[in-house]
Write a protein that binds this DNA or RNA. Sequence first.
RNA 1: UGGGUUAUGGUGUAAUGGUAGCACAACAGAUUUUGAUUCUGUUUGUCUAGGUUCGAAUCCUGGUAACCCAACCA
Length: 551
Amino acid sequence: MSEEKSLNFIEEIIEEGIASGKYKTIVTRFPPEPNGYLHMGHATSICLNFGLTKKYPGYTNLRFDDTNPITEDTEYVESIKEDIKWLGFEWKNELYASDYFDELYNYAVQLINKGLAYVDDLTSEEIATYKGTPTQPGKDSPYRNRTVAENLSLFEKMKAGEFEDGSKTLRAKIDMAHTNMLMRDPLIYRIKHAHHHRTGNKWCIYPMYDFAHGQSDSIEHITHSICTLEFIPHRELYDWFIEKLEIYPSHQYEFARRNLSYTVMSKRKLLQLVNEKHVNGWDDPRMPTISGMRRRGFTASSIRKFCDTIGIAKRDNVTDFSLLEFCLREDLNNTALRAMAVLDPIKLVITNYPENATEELLSENGPDEMQGKRTVPFSKELWIEREDFLEVPIKKWFRLAPGASVRLKSAYIVTCTGFDKDAHGNITTIYCTYHPDSKSGGDHSGLTVKGTIHWVSVAHAATAEVRLYDRLFKVENPSNEEGDFKDYINPGSLQIIKAYIEPSLLSASIDKRYQFLRKGYFCVDKESTADKLVFNRTVTLKDTWGGNAKK
RNA sequence: UGGGUUAUGGUGUAAUGGUAGCACAACAGAUUUUGAUUCUGUUUGUCUAGGUUCGAAUCCUGGUAACCCAACCA
């Protein structure tokens, strides 16, 4: 019974390191930039980094990579912390790259002293020109050979605010003809007279990513600095700084970012959707953001399960959204409370049921008996789903049709005796007779039916707004299509309807999940009030009949 | 005509020279007071051409394809 799950390539590296005695414990970090909300791509990284230190001895830091004050904000810091906690992870230390600005400044001075950095006066356009192209070498800046003393003095003045934004930079002195573009004298400090969300106006020079990330890792003694594939070329620079600065040798490892079909997963694109109002904010339930998915009704455990299932590797990928839905349904099926709601109502009248009578029927709250039962009021007039009746039944039709019988869930078997139509040919009312001895739980009618449908008593029904969500994009990979990704937005991704709900749902709670029988999983939206209940459809039930109907 | 990374069913991921496995999806059947759940089964794969070997997804050689790198973003 040794069912051992195989290791991913990072776990292999860790186990080798532990086996060889390179380290006994590991330290990882999750390093978001506080300039946007976390999305499913980040969830993978969070599950990876925090998961590794759950599996192996060690801990994980949360470190905000806040080296660009122009785009960063505390609003994002708060949302990021909330999302990580909600996903079920705890960081050891809450840290900020900005905590290290003094140390980083000193590192820069060290490089200057070693003749490995210089102040450059070239404009950004000139720097780009001097840099060359991937196929052509760059050329040295005319300021490249300033003396150490001159560089020291200039850098000091940069810090003191004596120069305007963009007028000078500090660059590492490496090799302008290097095949790796990142090694062609990369910028390490730039001037930005901007207010920083944590250091205020103390600084007017800020380190670049490459001169902050690796050094921060090193200061924190991160053993495994895990990032995505596009940072592979940065690793050479990462190692170069550590070597020249003679600081703790953290190592960078890269894995392929996880993509999900029918959505986009870049902060830039998500920001566009928000700013151009294609969605209603970062936590719109259609967004692949953690906050959006939480609002939609996804559970943290289903997201963790999903991340665990898709694994990590180094090749480009697009995971089927249906796998995420599978993990969700698997979780919700066990935990969601059952209730009945009719989303597209049509009236059903039981002609032989007594006028003004009401019965309180028992119905199970879920598959687990521990979830108990609730009562549901039943009466002569019911709302049922319009799609559960067909005037002319198709093959293998289990539901209502003239002369056909179905079980009303937790109630009686009814047989259709007729229906009304309006002038446009729309069916307005369905008439049935019920079989009194077929009552759920004590059925001795001897009748058997193939179909069971849900219902809500007209006299007892409450109403709610229900928001039906569908995939945000019409195509699997919007970023790979011709033209703008926004051309592929699914215009029907949100449908708002009014539904009749059973009265027990009046006390639905925002922290619970519900299965509206046969219709899907739903949750209370944050905009819901006592006067106006609002439900979000998290996901439909799996439907193996829909396809058959077309055949 | 530079450098780097990656190629296993429709999708994701295993197999570390020895039976190509698992999950999702799809399809078929059984059970079902949710056409859900549960259970059973089926279809589909090693980028390509050579080579080494008793034996290659794995090692070697040559192709091919995809992705990344020329922000004072991270």
